[in-house]
Design a protein around this nucleic acid. Structure first.
Lengths: 351, 351
DNA sequence: GTTTTTATGGTAACCGGTGTCAAGAGGTGT
DNA sequence: ACACCTCTTGACACCGGTTACCATAAAAAC
């Protein structure tokens, strides 16, 4: 609390001031700051009192220079979904709130062939303690190898275990998608369409697998005309809607690999006068704000992205977080997605 | 391009290595790095060649220590709208891409009485070159004074000029809202409802003023029952919808102070079987993704947030951006919002 | 009581840059 | 040719911490 040096021109107290006030050497003060053992309680108390009195805060720049490491966590992302990134950020920030760490955000351009060089330069410059890789770039093994190489710890966020548990936070998307689709089957749906995510995205593959799993269990198959490609964008949902809903025998339900595409598909349904959910049930994925903003509200899979941010921080820098961070519990680092029922699902017509 | 030191254990070359190779003192190298005048072209060329050969990159931590300033821009926000924050971030990052700067993101908790202390500690620790204040905290004069106090440059982002032009990036929201409402009047609407933003937000006040301006011009008034409070949240839109659309004489058009509330209002209309835009026209504000994801797509005011991020960077740290940054053009720092017509507006019934 | 441990505390060098200030180089005026 | 001035450059201390290594006082062993 106490902080005496707050005047405009007031210089920050340095470690030397503390040492002088406490009557010890700066090295001793440094030991106290870094929680070294081998210290008399008396000495420690004296130093801490001096620190308190002066309102001393160690200069991170100086520490960074000496440590050859900045007290930063880098968040690398190239995610089209703003909400996801921001929620994740928020989780991380929740977790590091009381630590000395700060968060550096860095969008990277996957696609660019200079990406690796860019990231390398960035990491060499900023020298963060660790890096967090958000999907889809978390799936890039070269990036992970680069971090390893530069001595930067990392965690990868993904829809599936793409690295060992200590370096990967994931959720059980596949299972939950399967669960959601089983629900459709239970309601009596037999013609169920699928709108896929972009090729090359692990998340898209996971969702598709979950979908197919549930269909297979029910002995249903997925005719090619009910399978639409997509890229997680609203417009892809529109296109999928045009295709699927113009069929002679349209599906009575569609699983869309994310909420935006679901919104696109739904607007096509509205345009064609198809009643949702009466004539067409729709399920999305993400539980983004869009899911509740459209009408009728979308049944979707909630991805615990903020919790993943917290867990990512706990996994990445447990030694920098205050005590209690060890209470992370489940060490598998697989968090639970959940199916959220809203108003876009009902029994198919004629049941 | 060249970077010879890329091995895992390979130490980064330091300024000393460069100095030795170029046969000059480290201070001279430092001068080259910092683009000092008073340098022979010959010397400069020699040093630059050495830098190139070694792939030398100045260590930001050391520079930060010596400069007593980190090469960072802090982005302070407490914005409920993720998309806004992220778009702004993106603009800033566009602008600083080729500079030595990095972006530090810091959500702050307005509302907390410790906010100022938190921010002070943060700024004292990180010592960024400058700070950007996003609305609504940009309206907090104490925050601005704090930055001033700590020698941190700042820019405030707002819906109106809340500081002098060099420290404020704003847009002409009021005018554009008025323009949009004039459009409604021109279509024949006479009973036009209004859903307000949260009390205490300058942006909310601006939008209301624009709305009232247009009404006044047309000689219309705003009966109390057509005026709904709000807080920029979807649920507020729902509540406003329940109130406005249950009236014996409901409005034929409603201006909502942001898109989320407009989405809420629209879903109430759908629930009540009121046709949009046939029986009810709706206008929002923000042009968030929601605006296009709902059906029918929402006519709204686009706020040039990404451009504002770019402009904010150009205004805050012109000296750190490469050349060409001066071509910022219009120095008033008022960017143009624009009215975006989509499908949620039509003439009132019976016209 | 003396010696050997053991536990701290202190000193100096260092992390990799920048500021200050004075010296050296090169050109001018007389 | 010499004093004088200006423009470049370099030596050195310094930013505020850390580590390496040594010194010393207190505790333990003989």
């Amino acid at each position: 609390m106490a902080a005496q040096n707050k005047g405009p021109g007031g210089k920050q107290p340095t470690i030397n001031d503390v040492a002088a006030l406490a009557g010890v050497s700066k090295k001793t003060v440094s030991r106290v700051i870094n929680r070294s053992e081998f210290l008399t309680d008396k000495t420690r108390a004296a130093v801490e009192k001096a620190i308190e009195q002066l309102g001393f805060v160690p200069n991170p720049q100086a520490r960074a220079l000496a440590f050859r490491r900045n007290f930063l966590i880098a968040l690398l992302h190239d995610n089209p979904n703003a909400q996801t990134v921001l929620n994740f950020q928020r989780g991380v920030l929740d977790a590091i709130k009381d630590s000395d760490l700060a968060l550096l955000v860095r969008p990277v351009d996957r696609g660019s062939d200079k990406m690796l060089d860019d990231v390398r330069t960035f990491l060499e410059k900023q020298r963060p303690i660790g890096a967090m890789l958000l999907p889809p770039i978390s799936e890039n093994d070269d990036l992970a190898a680069l971090c390893e190489d530069l001595g930067v710890r990392y965690v990868r966020i993904g829809s599936a275990r793409i690295d060992d548990a200590k370096r990967c936070i994931s959720s059980n998307d596949r299972e939950v998608v399967a669960e959601a689709v089983r629900g459709l089957v239970a309601l009596g749906h037999r013609r169920i369409g699928f709108v896929r995510g972009p090729v090359g995205f692990r998340s898209a593959a996971e969702r598709e697998e979950g979908f197919r799993e549930a269909l297979a269990e029910a002995g249903l198959d997925l005719p090619p005309e009910l399978y639409a490609p997509g890229n997680y964008r609203y417009t892809a949902g529109i296109e999928a809607g045009e295709a699927l809903l113009s069929l002679a025998a349209p599906p009575t339900a569609v699983f869309c690999s994310n909420d935006e595409m679901a919104a696109g598909l739904m607007s096509v349904a509205h345009g064609k006068g198809i009643k949702v959910p009466g004539e067409l049930s729709i399920i999305g994925f993400d539980d983004s704000p869009t899911a509740t903003h459209i009408w009728p509200a979308l049944s979707t899979v909630r991805w615990p992205i903020r919790e993943m941010g917290i867990r990512a921080a706990q996994t990445l820098v447990p030694d920098f977080l205050g005590p209690g961070a060890k209470a992370a519990g489940d060490e598998s680092n697989v968090l639970a997605s959940t199916f959220v029922e809203r108003q876009s699902v009902a029994a198919p017509p004629g049941r």
